[in-house]
Design a protein around this nucleic acid. Structure first.
Lengths: 232, 232
DNA sequence: CGTGCGCTTGACTTTTTTCAATAAAGGTGG
DNA sequence: CCACCTTTATTGAAAAAAGTCAAGCGCACG
């Protein structure tokens, strides 16, 4: 793939919107492309940071592991998202693990190059500040969810979020295996399974096959998410 | 307080180290000073962001509240730390609450000014990128701790961290009430109290008065922190 | 067509929370 | 400096939530 093609790809990423053309040009010059197979590790916790990744398509996840092997998913990344920025600016090492969930094509921009371009084009730095700030909000929300709420509440929040992402559709798909959803919510497959079963019995939703969800009572689901009542 | 004095204060903050003199000058011009009394709210979740705070002295904490009033402390800020940066660069609103733990003197740099100076002095932007990246690491650790480990483990990690911050002293002080320590660890005062009592019975540590701690068996405490065994 | 992985369910254990009562500490004003 | 009052900490007992272990089912993929 040549530089022009890479530049065209960068141009598609909202993150780079509005940056001067010669900035993109320089970034394209140093950018590598890499495609990861499903389940392929992308980086490991503590690894020396190559640089920053742009997801072109596919899906990957960033996670931590406990000593006994339990997974906590920190975030799932999809098309057009940027990851690994934190390791570029402090610590030089990735603070967690990442692996592909499906075939995933990425661009990799090396550490040194990013920093150099930030000096030259402050707008790039501001863009990255925006990304990092958003990431921080994401983590604040995650901490809140994990520490203040019980599993059915977290699940309700998650399902409503998924529905919202699809224009508020009643019927949609968990796009990842349930075991992974559990790992996102900071719990185990068994606990998630029971929570879904209870919500089904309460008439809040219906499950179809292994990943299908139909929301039946948005009202009460929202109340559950807001902590107004509990699933007994 | 005049501009020169503010500039001198900014100069003391490691965060501003190495920035050009005229950058500090401009920042000093727009900086306000404010002192908060103990327990005084600094900002509330969702409030329009004034700008970024620099803690000159004192201590404050940033936290979330659950619907039923339980507190989760996200981070405690002390002298020379910067907070509120995330709200400057995305969202325009603070994502959590902050209040003073004791009398706390701060400098406040307005949003617009920070952004303007970032454009003019890319090093300021890089400094902020560094701060935000570090903050992200902090949250990654917090999420890991909350989701992957039980309370005694989290407590062990916290105590060893406190000890390390004081050159590895065996004897030191929780600098905040135990109830707040509980809120940092994502649990309740009762649970914390019991964890400390058990650790005392196991000979891992000793408590003195309301905030004093003496570590008696670093080895085993470390093992507990590493998840190698459990407190039965 | 079988094997394996993911999902579900049940029974049981452990951890944490909840509720309540008491004790200790800390701060304030006399 | 002491007495009082409020806040903070401890402890017990009971309940609830989540985790563990184990068995079984079903679907997808080779």
């Amino acid at each position: 793939m040549n530089i022009e093609q890479k530049k065209d790809l960068l141009n598609l990423v909202p993150f780079f919107r509005g940056l001067p053309d010669d900035c993109l040009e320089k970034l394209a010059e140093i950018t590598r492309e890499h495609t990861f197979a499903p389940k392929e590790p992308i980086f490991g916790e503590g690894a020396e940071a190559d640089g920053m990744f742009i997801v072109l398509n596919g899906k990957l996840y960033v996670y931590k592991l406990s000593p006994d092997g339990k997974e906590q998913i920190l975030k799932i990344f999809e098309s057009m998202e940027v990851l690994g920025e934190a390791a570029v600016f402090s610590g030089h090492r990735y603070p967690a693990n990442a692996a592909a969930l499906e075939e995933t094509r990425t661009l990799i921009i090396p550490r040194a190059g990013v920093i150099r371009q930030c000096r030259e084009f402050p707008d790039l730095a501001l863009s990255l500040l925006d990304v990092l700030s958003g990431r921080l909000r994401h983590f604040v929300h995650l901490v809140e969810s994990l520490s203040l709420q019980e599993v059915p509440t977290r699940l309700a929040v998650y399902l409503l979020y998924l529905s919202a992402r699809k224009d508020g559709a009643e019927q949609f798909d968990l796009e990842i295996p349930k075991g992974r959803v559990a790992a996102m919510l900071g719990t185990l497959p068994e606990t998630l399974s029971r929570a879904l079963a209870k919500m089904g019995k309460e008439g809040l939703l219906q499950t179809e096959g292994s990943r299908g969800i139909t929301l039946l009572d948005r009202e009460r689901l929202q109340g559950l998410a807001d902590g107004e009542w509990r699933l007994r």
